[in-house]
């Protein structure tokens, strides 16, 4: 109606109030800073259009050499895949066996602080390195082969499963724990009848997820000599055996997809 008026606001506020979406200057500054970083980092890594153009040309040649996939050395392929599977299964089993007691120790609602901290530290330590880096150290410790891969993936599983399981245990309802305790049950009975039933379904989901992750990584640890198909894959790459590479990668993808379907089935059976 009129300028000013009874509800006269300071000018900027009035102007901003007329905008349905007032600008957020902090966010814009952050975007700008990020854009500057983006350009800087791209320059640091020497990304140039010329390299992309050259890459496209190489890429076309590379893809044409991938096909058709060469399954002639299927025995070698099968041996590597079986070893990867074995690594994933054993590592998952060991990881579960270790992370069950560890996550119980790390749960703040059940255990005293002097026990939760060391357990948490172990998990953080297990989680902080990529499985392939852990595999390097185990290759030095126990030599080339599947054992190094198993141990590396066990460490990774403990870090990841331990964290998820601890969080699940900390979220349980303590009423049931109290009820079981009130009946005079010893500690193990409290765990078995008050804790486990509350978290079992979620644990199945976590274990399925981790087994899936281990399957993916077990195809990789071979690159550093820790067993499985990864070693065969890396060797084929270095010999420019690209058609064999293609066969290996296709098999890995098939196995991982099969694993995903299987874990989905299992989750449905356990209604996770």
């Amino acid at each position: 109606m009129t300028r000013g008026g009874p509800l006269s606001l300071p000018r900027e506020t009035a102007a901003a109030a007329r905008l349905a979406f007032p600008p957020n200057w902090w966010a814009r500054a952050a975007w700008l800073a990020f854009a500057v970083y983006f350009v800087y980092a791209a320059a640091q890594l020497e990304f140039t259009p010329a390299r992309f153009a050259a890459g496209l040309e190489h890429g076309a040649k590379f893809v044409s050499r991938l096909f058709p996939p060469d399954f002639h050395r299927w025995a070698l392929l099968l041996k590597g895949m079986v070893e990867s599977l074995q690594i994933a299964v054993v590592a998952s089993a060991l990881g579960v066996a270790l992370s069950l007691p560890l996550s119980l120790m790390a749960a703040r609602n059940l255990m005293p602080a002097w026990l939760t901290w060391p357990a948490r530290l172990v998990m953080i330590f297990c989680r902080s390195f990529h499985p392939v880096i852990v595999a390097i150290l185990f290759v030095k410790a126990v030599g080339f082969g599947a054992l190094a891969g198993i141990l590396a993936l066990t460490v990774a599983s403990v870090g990841f499963l331990g964290k998820l399981m601890t969080e699940a245990i900390e979220e349980i309802s303590l009423k049931q724990v109290e009820a079981v305790r009130a009946s005079g049950a010893p500690f193990m009975s409290v765990v078995m009848f008050a804790v486990v039933p509350q978290v079992f379904g979620r644990f199945v989901g976590f274990v399925a997820y981790e087994t899936d992750a281990n399957l993916r990584n077990s195809t990789m640890v071979g690159i550093v000599g820790a067993g499985g198909i990864g070693g065969t894959l890396f060797a084929a790459f270095q010999r420019f055996d690209y058609d064999f590479v293609c066969a290996i990668v296709l098999t890995i993808i098939a196995l991982i997809m099969l694993g995903e379907v299987l874990t989905m089935r299992i989750k449905r059976i356990f209604r996770v």
Binding site: L45, E46, F47, R51, A54, G55, H58, G59, F62, V132, R216, N217, T219, M220, I223, L233, F234, F237, Y242, V245, V249, I252, I253, I256, M257
Partner: peptide, 28 residues
């Protein structure tokens, strides 16, 4: 989405090293 996820980062890296040559571009 599924096929991008099923190929491990390291396998993608091997591919891109073959395409762009060794270096940060392949890693990115």
């Amino acid at each position: 989405l599924v096929s991008a996820r099923s190929v491990n980062t390291l396998i993608w890296a091997l591919f891109f090293v073959a395409v762009f040559g060794p270096g940060a571009l392949a890693g990115t």
